[in-house]
Design a protein around this nucleic acid. Structure first.
Length: 332
DNA sequence: TAGCAAGCGGGTTTGTGCGA
DNA sequence: TCGCACAAACCCGCTTGCTA
């Protein structure tokens, strides 16, 4: 056990005198209130120690008072409200069942709490808890990104239905309010899952989780290029292919794309079916909206592949893209 | 501090016209 | 006939303001 904070003696009602100590219990960082009479372990037993079981809001009142009076800094306050997963699970279940209207005050002031609550919500998805990284990615993609086919709900609604609306709205550790992407990014960071790591074979594209204004500005342009590249990387062998092979693969799998829905086909439908219809119709970085040449040119400009290199015979011609290039069709 | 609701604005979907 | 190109409607992420 290592001491972190200086001893503070303060009269705060039942919290007669205590000092703040950080330690690790079962590999989980927890905060202890050490009183002059002994040590209380974890958030739950701290409440027990001070006869505040079932009164977390009262405990937070004192913790906040300690902060306001300068006995603990912001980091200290965060540690004071750090809860172990078991305790959070009880609060989570109480909120879900309606027994508790909301999470105790201060719950969302701790980064780890936010990650645990996100995890508890995700673990309501069957198989998530035991899934490996790839399994988790698949479940996130299938069950909460985009419209869930069973519930018809999207990712934000998933977290709202899990009772995490307050957390999404108020936690200081989320980059944006009510942003499902911010929640998943924090969970990903805290759990070190590398869900968005593009160097891995399977990963979540940052563009897969919708965000307001996501296609705007330089960041939006970079994201668009990344999204197009992600989609092309799904073509077997594309990621490591030479320029010539890339062009051949694009002609075969993109320009010659046959949609399984049997409606539209070709380049545009390839990108639509890959989840880029929104970018196609709204990205301000496309010379034309929903234009296959514009999409591939944006990608080519961003990655310098040389798809349209006028000095090379095998380059893609815009005329090939303006209409469906029937000679490239496959799969029918 | 947490939760809720309303409203805005932007992303997504859908429908249709047009040209090769 | 096919699929690109565009517009409009719809949906949902996000902000704001209010209350408990």
């Amino acid at each position: 056990m290592r001491k972190r904070h200086k001893k503070i003696s303060i009269d705060l009602g039942e919290l007669v005198s205590f000092r703040l100590v950080e330690t690790t219990v079962d590999n989980e960082r927890v905060f202890l209130l050490k009183t002059t009479e002994g040590t209380s372990v974890s958030y739950a037993s701290t409440l027990q120690k001070f006869q505040m079981e079932g009164q977390p809001d009262r405990y937070f009142f004192y913790a906040r008072k300690a902060f306001e009076e300068g006995f603990v800094n912001e980091q200290g306050l965060e540690l004071l409200v750090q809860m172990e997963k078991l305790t959070l699970k009880e609060y989570y279940d109480d909120v879900q069942s309606g027994e508790r209207e909301q999470f105790p005050h201060g719950t969302h002031l701790n980064r780890a709490n936010v990650a645990i609550l996100t995890e508890l919500a995700l673990e309501t998805i069957e198989g998530f808890e035991t899934a490996n990284r790839e399994g988790k990615i698949k479940l996130i993609r299938d069950k909460i990104i985009g419209k869930n086919e069973e519930t018809g709900k999207r990712v934000l609604q998933f977290f709202l239905d899990c009772g995490l609306g307050g957390m999404l709205m108020h936690s200081r550790y989320l980059d944006k309010k009510n942003s499902p992407l911010a929640v998943l990014e924090l969970y990903n960071r805290e759990r070190k899952l590398n869900l968005f790591d593009r160097s891995q074979g399977e990963y979540l594209g940052r563009w897969e989780i919708r965000k307001r204004g996501m296609w705007k500005g330089k960041a939006g342009k970079d994201l668009a290029v990344e999204a197009i590249e992600d989609v092309l990387w799904k073509i077997p062998g594309y990621k490591t292919a030479t320029r010539e092979e890339k062009i051949r693969l694009i002609r075969t799998y993109v320009m010659g794309y046959r949609s399984p829905t049997g409606k539209e086909h070709g380049t545009l439908q390839f990108f639509k079916d890959s989840g880029l219809s929104g970018m196609l119709s709204k990205s301000p970085h496309l010379a034309k909206h929903s234009s296959p040449p514009a999409v591939l040119r944006l990608y080519d400009e961003g990655r310098s592949v040389g798809l349209f290199d006028p000095d090379k015979d095998d380059s893609i011609k815009e005329t090939e893209l303006r209409r469906g290039h029937q000679s490239h069709r496959y799969g029918k």
